[in-house]
Amino acid sequence: MNKIIEKEYFSEKVVKLVVEAPLIARSRKAGHFVIVRAGAKGERIPLTIASADKDKGTITLVVQAVGKSSSKLCALNEGDYITDVVGPLGQATHIEKVGTVVCCGGGVGVAPLLPIVEAFKKAGNRVITVLAARTKELIILEEQMKTNSDEVIVMTDDGSYGQKGLVTQGVEDVIKREKVDLCVTIGPAIMMKFVSLLTKKYDIPTVASLNTIMVDGTGMCGACRITVGGKTKFVCVDGPEFDAHQVDFDEMMMRLSSYKDME
């Protein structure tokens, strides 16, 4: 059982939870995720660790209420307990000094992007962060991103904040302006697919952090399997980050709809 220490609403449907998990806080690195389960009849779902505080023994999760399980989590309050939190899982982000890194995230994908932005900045890179959302209210973590990036570009679909347009437009503007050595993308599969197509055109190495269906999160079931470079990989143990240009995003999106009728 893991106690919720702090809860904050980023928007109506996006909640930040600071959760007691001292062992995970101690061993996690950027890119890692946890599996959580709320309630005795609860489902196991993966959530990326947005940040952690070793001294306080807490990890921060950002949850968007989209289905039954995520809504259940979002409904928990400070002082409540999450039945199970297990991790850190997956491979940590490979961080090194490459030059200029563009980090782009959409929607709730911005939360797991934060530790990656921090880590690349710390490693001495020039970091440009592109945040995207449908509308102004859904832009999250802008301040934290600004603290850790050389530049933050905000894109909204409706133009209510920052520039009007999709994340790809923001990224392309940067690519046209200066040399980009690496692109990191986290967000809805469709967004990552288009970012990947864009950077492929410019031949820029790109890493995507994938969010597939998972059950155990330790490699024992294969629910999260995807095709990368023609080979089947398990996102939970081989990933969650992969060379975006090798990922079969269409298959991934198809598999994400496996249980659509039942949600």
Binding site: V215, M220, C221, G222, R225, T232, E251, R255, S257, S258
Partner: peptide, 13 residues
């Protein structure tokens, strides 16, 4: 990798 194909571990779990 089509929908509806899974390992016995996933199904039984």
């Amino acid at each position: 990798n089509l929908i509806g194909i899974m390992s016995s571990n996933e199904y039984l779990t």
